[in-house]
Design a protein around this nucleic acid. Structure first.
Lengths: 105, 105
DNA sequence: CGAATCCATAAGTCTGTACTTATGTTTCAA
DNA sequence: TTGAAACATAAGTACAGACTTATGGATTCG
């Protein structure tokens, strides 16, 4: 299976994608993460295991707690896949250029 | 459902994603597309209907034939989602810049 | 020590969906 | 006009996977 295949599969589930997005706020325990979701704790753990297997998340244990953190570099293969088609839309490129320009500063 | 949710769901299936990628070669009929896939003609038609509903493909009828063509702009919401996380990887930005530079020429 | 908390895993259920075959519609060709 | 080709839709099947409850291991606290 290609890298982007695993990423598409992993991020296709809305709940799992929401967990990923939520970790954008910063490192968090499973219990923290559970707040705001209507699914059980095992469901959260299962999603985290899937995200970890896909390289989208890393884990750090401390006592009873498991801290999960975003690994945004894991998205690189997906970004690469999308970029292959970006060349088809010249009108959008400008905004991307602007973004890169901002990041230079 | 958000736009990127529909895109993730639509592109999660490997066969459907392969159909999308194949259309990168250019406009094609369903029969043309069928060659090289091990699934039935209805399966191809169903995938094309899903891609069309997601705005990733457009259709043109001519006699008995249905010509399908890529709509790469349909990927924009997905690209936007990925870009939110691109800011986390400075080391990859260089390659993106190079790509944009090439496209200027 | 015992109870409680945090998390992972096991096992089973159930829904979504990607496929199949069957069939209908339209168009073209002999 | 009859048959074949191109495609879509219908209906049914089968499997993946997202959930659940139950449980166990590890840690912390009283």
């Amino acid at each position: 299976m290609t890298a982007e295949a695993a990423l598409f599969r992993t991020l296709a589930d809305p709940t799992r994608r929401a967990v990923f997005e939520r970790l954008g706020e910063g490192e968090m325990t499973v219990s923290d993460l559970r707040q705001g979701f209507s699914v059980s704790q095992p469901a959260i753990s299962q999603h985290l295991a899937a995200l970890k297997a896909a390289g989208l998340v890393s884990e750090r244990r401390a006592g009873r707690n498991a801290y999960y953190r975003l690994c945004p570099e894991g998205l690189a293969p997906l970004a690469g896949w999308v970029d292959r088609y970006r060349t088809f839309w010249p009108e959008r490129i400008g905004r991307l250029k602007d973004l890169l320009k901002e990041m230079d500063q």
